[in-house]
Amino acid sequence: MKEQKIKRVYVWEIPVRFYHWLNALVVATLAVTGYLIGNPFAIQSGAEAYLGYWFGTVRFIHFVAAFIFFFNFLFRVYWGFAGNKYADWKNFIPYTKKYIKECFDVLKLDILHIKGKPFISVGHNALAGLTYFLTFLAFLFQSITGFGMYSAMSDSFFPKLFAWIVPLMGGDFAVRQWHHLMMWFFIIFAIVHVYIVFYHDYVEGRGVLSSMAGGWKFIEKDKPD
């Protein structure tokens, strides 16, 4: 029997995995409830208002999920400084030539299929890292606009910290409009993201898909991790 050529690497520590799945859950919740807030269905029953509160409940869920979403995100930013090298903030920001070159390599290899030779990046590849960085910016945008709108409905100090966005964008209407449009960024990101993960798992067979569950990825033994 030939010797095994594969070794395994512990990439995603528990905090990253916990963050990821909590985030996926609340983002899905926010998108569904957000969509309903923008497009509620009407009950044509001749009912009295005191009999129901479903729309209020949908909004309540949106706001609870929003708080979880925001602090979970802050936690991930913290972990970008405290976690292992795969979780490090440097994976997300294209500040070196090498990083940018890898982005183009991945683009040619996996998206355009014009480069044949595969190569390894153990954590996020550069293009993925950059995409997540953009996603983090979208998280920030959605949080600022969301809490900015929320500041009108709350006496708490926390949402008031974001109230400046309203005059900056010209009014609540514009804020709501952009907040709504940004929902589609999340939906499209999630679709592409899940597809790409399946794609990598299928083409490379390194266990990318399950890495966010168990934390492990697999690479050739002669490659550095």
Partner: peptide, 22 residues
Amino acid sequence: DTCYRRPNYDAGLFVESFDDES
């Protein structure tokens, strides 16, 4: 915030056209 139709909003009771029952 002070609209008297607000309870209908919270209950999800919406007008869908200017001449409907709602």
